[in-house]
Every structure is written in structure tokens, then in C-alpha cells.
């Protein structure tokens, strides 16, 4: 440090604390609201301290039979979302690592064409092909299925590019040593490449889990039945009713339930997450 300026540092702390308050306040506010009764919520301003309806609201939302969206419980929505986030994360990693392995460690006709075919999918997000994709999904009978929710999102240029970049840093001598040691492509993949990719896989897992959890347009298009949709879409359906009918206290609870799992994943796997994020995108 050049300047050991205590006043400057003090100001820095103040600004950071204000920043954290801005960043955290909407979440905190929703949490506070989730512990209030409906009447309290409808009479602003809301107290800034949690109310005493925590157990009441949360058990009502989770087990109570109330707080259902079109007859579907929050537990079902959470389950669907977890399935979607996990399947997308695991599927994407598996598919991408295999493609990257093929592209980096083999030489075969059409290699670069395949690479570009994968690369170009970066430029074809769902948003630019909404209707035709929907039609394909209808034709294949994938609407309202877990396959439909997850499989089409498993192809990922970003993850393939990340693994490819990482694989290219693996010294050729290591491959040769393995070949001299009698390891074929499968053994090399299982014994050497996978263990070496552990950190990258962990980092990517966090990012893809969040990606899967926060999907919006896709589940909106791919699900008609309420029992097949995700918690984010479920929430949207809860608040789209006229204000008077909405059970806001349960909306707040559902909102917190939709936010907490991915936040926990990010917090607990922060080290991987930060590494993965900065490296995936660069």
C-alpha cells in the first residue's frame, strides 16, 4: 500500500457498507415480509425487523395446503427446479467435457467444422428462435416433461470452450507418458483428465446450477401444467392474480424459498464460483 490513509479507508468501508445495504436490502425486506401476516404486509410501511409469523407462514407455504399455485404445492415446484438445475448442470458438464475431449485430444476429418458448429450455437439463444423451438418440442412430445425442460439446454458452447481451453494447457508429455504407461483414450480420460479437471468441473457446476435455477423463458414456454413448472414461473403465476386475492405473505415465503438454495450454493462454493465465473467468461 502506498498510502496508509486511515480516513480514506474509513470512507471505503462506509461506501462498501452502503453498497451491501443496497444489494442486500431487497432480499432482507422480502424476508421480513415473509414473517409478517397478510394484514401487516398490506399496511405499509413495514417494520424493518422480522415479525412473529415465521413458522406459521413457512409451514403454511410448505405443508399447509394453502399457498398453492393452481393446486400445486411449493414443494413440488422446488423439486422441479432442483431437478432442472441439477440435470442441466450435470448434463452440460458431461456433454461438454466429452466434446472438448474429442476436439482437443483427437485428430479426425471435420474436427474444425464440428468445433465451429458448437461455437456458433453461442449466437442462437432461445430468444431468437422461440416459436420454431416450441414447435419442435411439441412435435417431439416434450412439453411438460423433465426431458423437455432440461435436455435442449444441455448443449453449451461456453462450457465446451472452457474445457477446451483448459485441456489445451495440459502438457502433451503427460499424454505421452500415459500412452507409454499403457493408458488408452478411456483410461487417460478417467484416470488423468477427469481428476485434473476437478476444479473446473466444480466451478462450472456452480455457474450452471445457478443458470438452470434462474431459467425463465424456457420453462415458461415448455410447461403448461402447473405441476411441471419451476418455482420462478410458479411465483410469477401467484402474483399475476389481481392484487386483492394474492396471499402476499405466502408469496414472500415462496420468494425466499426460491432465492435461498442458489444463494447457498454460491456462498458455500464461493471459491469455485468466483474462479469459474472469471475464467469461463474470459
Amino acid at each position: 500500500m502506498i498510502q496508509n490513509n486511515p480516513i480514506g479507508r474509513f470512507i471505503a468501508h462506509i461506501i462498501l457498507i452502503i453498497g451491501i445495504m443496497i444489494v442486500a436490502f431487497p432480499i432482507y425486506y422480502t424476508f421480513v415480509a415473509s414473517t409478517q401476516s397478510l394484514q401487516e404486509i398490506m399496511r405499509p410501511p413495514l417494520s424493518l425487523l422480522p415479525g412473529n409469523h415465521f413458522w406459521e407462514n413457512y409451514s403454511a407455504a410448505l405443508f399447509g395446503g394453502v399457498g398453492r399455485i393452481g393446486g400445486v404445492g411449493v414443494d413440488r415446484l422446488l423439486f422441479n427446479t432442483i431437478v432442472m438445475a441439477l440435470a442441466i448442470a450435470v448434463g452440460k458438464i458431461a456433454i461438454s467435457i466429452l466434446s472438448a475431449y474429442a476436439i482437443v485430444f483427437f485428430r479426425f476429418p471435420g474436427r474444425m467444422i464440428f468445433f465451429w458448429l458448437i461455437f456458433i450455437t453461442l449466437m442462437l439463444p432461445v430468444e431468437v428462435r422461440i416459436l420454431p423451438t416450441y414447435k419442435v418440442m411439441v412435435d417431439l412430445g416434450l412439453i411438460d416433461t423433465y426431458t423437455g425442460l432440461t435436455l435442449p439446454l444441455m448443449a453449451s458452447a461456453t462450457a465446451t470452450l472452457l474445457f477446451r481451453q483448459f485441456f489445451m494447457t495440459i502438457p502433451g508429455e503427460l499424454v505421452e507418458a500415459a500412452r507409454v504407461d499403457g493408458a488408452g483414450p478411456w483410461r487417460f480420460f478417467k484416470d488423468i483428465l477427469l481428476p485434473l479437471s476437478k476444479t473446473n468441473i466444480a466451478a462450472l457446476f456452480v455457474i450452471l446450477f445457478i443458470y438452470g435455477w434462474t431459467q425463465y423463458l424456457w420453462p415458461l414456454l415448455m410447461t403448461n401444467r402447473n405441476d411441471m413448472t419451476t418455482i420462478v414461473i410458479g411465483l410469477r403465476k401467484m402474483i399475476s392474480f389481481a392484487d386483492a386475492d394474492t396471499e402476499w405473505h405466502l408469496v414472500m415465503v415462496t420468494c425466499i424459498l426460491a432465492i435461498v438454495p442458489p444463494i447457498l450454493v454460491v456462498m458455500l462454493m464461493q471459491r469455485w464460483f468466483v474462479r469459474g465465473l472469471v475464467e469461463t467468461e474470459k
Binding site: 507418458a177 500412452r179 507409454v180 488423468i192 481428476p195
Partner: peptide, 20 residues
């Protein structure tokens, strides 16, 4: 024959030890 079938062993410049 592939390298594994030739019954040879090799010491590499950068050692190529499996880091994990």
C-alpha cells in the same frame, strides 16, 4: 506397435508426472 506394446519406458523433459 503402440507405445505401450513396445515395452519401453520414457523419461520426459518436464518429467510428465501425473500431478494429481
Amino acid at each position: 506397435l503402440g507405445p505401450a506394446e513396445r515395452d519401453i519406458a520414457m523419461v520426459f523433459q518436464n518429467y510428465a508426472l501425473y500431478p494429481h
